[in-house]
Structure formats: C-alpha cells, structure tokens
Amino acid sequence: MKRKTFIKQLGYGSGATLFLPSALLVGGCSHTPVDRTALTEVDVPFLDDLGETIIPSTPTVPGAKATAIGEYIVLMYNDCMSQEDKAILVKGINELDRRSAQMFEKSFLDATPEQRLQLLEAVQTEAHTYQLEMEGEEAADAHYFQILKGLVLTGYFTSEIGMTQAREYLPVPGKYVACMPYAPKDKVWAL
C-alpha cells in the first residue's frame, strides 16, 4: 500500500482529531492539549514519562526517567536533529498529547502507567504497520514514534545507568576472550 492510502486510513484515528474543533476536546476533558511548534524545557516532564513508558524501571534497574531522558531528547532536538525529523517529532508529540486527552480525558502525565502503556502500544502498532507499508520506499518519512523510540533507546543505553546497570560496561577490558559461555540470565556488554 502506498503512503497516501495509508494516511487516508489513519483518518479514523489520529488524523481525525486534527479536524475536531478544539472546543469539543476542551469541553470533554480536564486537559487541554498543547499545539507545540517546538520541543522545549517545558516538555521535559512529558518526555520523561514517555521515556519511562518505553523503558520502565524494574526492581533492580532504573528506567529512562532516572537518566533524565527528557533533557536528553530536548538537547538532541535542539542540536542534533534534521529539520524534517524535528517537524515529524513535534507533530507526533502533539498527537500523543491530544490522543491522551481524547482517550483518558487527562494529560499523559496524569494518566496511569497502564493507560500510558495502552496508548503507546497502540502507537507502536501503528508505527510498525506504517514501516511495513513504507518498505522499499526510499523517500518515505520516518514515523514519529520510530524517532521517539530511537531517541529513548540511544539516550538510555548511552547513559551511565543504561551502560553500567542495564548492561555491563567494561571501560578497559584488558583482554579479548574470543569464545565464552552465555546464558540468557547473563548480562550483555554495553556497546
């Protein structure tokens, strides 16, 4: 399926909210979604919670929020992303804000962890479907969730927590062991 058809089909979900009068949305919930034109420091708590939903804390290893993932995303947004990707990401964050308001009648920050996961799992499925549709299309834009998830994974696994607690970091290995046993419970090396 080509991109245009796919976007049309999105109409039942995210796309449709674009054309709803904002009064309707405001009337129906306690959260007014923000229509951002850029990501800024103000978005850090929202981005922290998005990150924590993607890489959550577990009993022994903190999640993305503990690595200040929101600060990292804003920094990368400001310094290291192309104009095209920045625009896609901002639009996507706005959409997540709107869909949270629509689905839960509250902001992503006020939603429960289960609700947050529910929303992002749905978006993950959409992103994956989109990716399959776009396969082989060289000029296809990335899906915003792909960009967001990529930022969270890179940010988390280049952080001290991600490298030294989630994985195992050897700053100076000292030797190369070419073959050694591995069991699924074993830690993996940080890259």
Partner: peptide, 23 residues
C-alpha cells in the same frame, strides 16, 4: 551479537527493556 533482537522492533515497556539486555 547485538545486545537485542528483532523483538525490539515491535516491543515497548518491559518486553523491550528485557530484549535490550539480552543477546
């Protein structure tokens, strides 16, 4: 061997974290 598999392409949350810490 990368410290993740194809599971990471479609997973988020706990399954993603688990996949990203296994070979």
């Amino acid at each position: 061997r990368a410290p993740f598999s194809d599971v990471s392409e479609t997973a988020i949350g706990l399954p993603l974290k688990q996949d990203q810490t296994q070979l």
